[in-house]
């Protein structure tokens, strides 16, 4: 074990404290909304399905929490025919 490793090991409690503070601030703010992603997914699928026939398994929703900005990534696979319709060709 190098000296650097040794020093790093010593300081793990402050890292734990900080990670917990960030995580719990988020979890407390979202208490009761734990199924928000599932709700979003259903509603997005419903809106699109009104116009295009899509496979509901081809909708992927990902959430990524950053320090300053969080992103919601929605990935919808559109069948070839409907895709042609969309871009107007």
């Amino acid at each position: 074990m190098s000296l650097l490793d040794f020093l790093r090991r010593r300081g793990s409690a402050p890292v734990a404290r900080e990670r917990l503070q960030v995580l719990l601030a988020y979890e407390r703010a979202n208490r009761g909304y734990s199924d928000l992603l599932a709700v979003l997914r259903e509603e997005i699928v419903a809106v699109i399905a009104r116009h295009i026939t899509i496979d509901r398994d081809c909708v992927a929703i990902k959430m990524d929490r950053g320090d300053t900005v969080s992103t919601l990534e929605i990935d919808i696979e559109i069948p070839h025919k409907a895709g042609a319709l969309l871009v107007g060709t």
């Binding site: 090991r9 010593r10 300081g11 793990s12 409690a13 503070q21 719990l24």
Partner: peptide, 16 residues
């Protein structure tokens, strides 16, 4: 271990 910074302290847990 808490004094060596290897374990969350009582104060950490109560504050959180």
């Amino acid at each position: 271990r808490a004094a060596r910074g290897e374990m969350l302290t009582i104060e950490d847990v109560l504050e959180i």
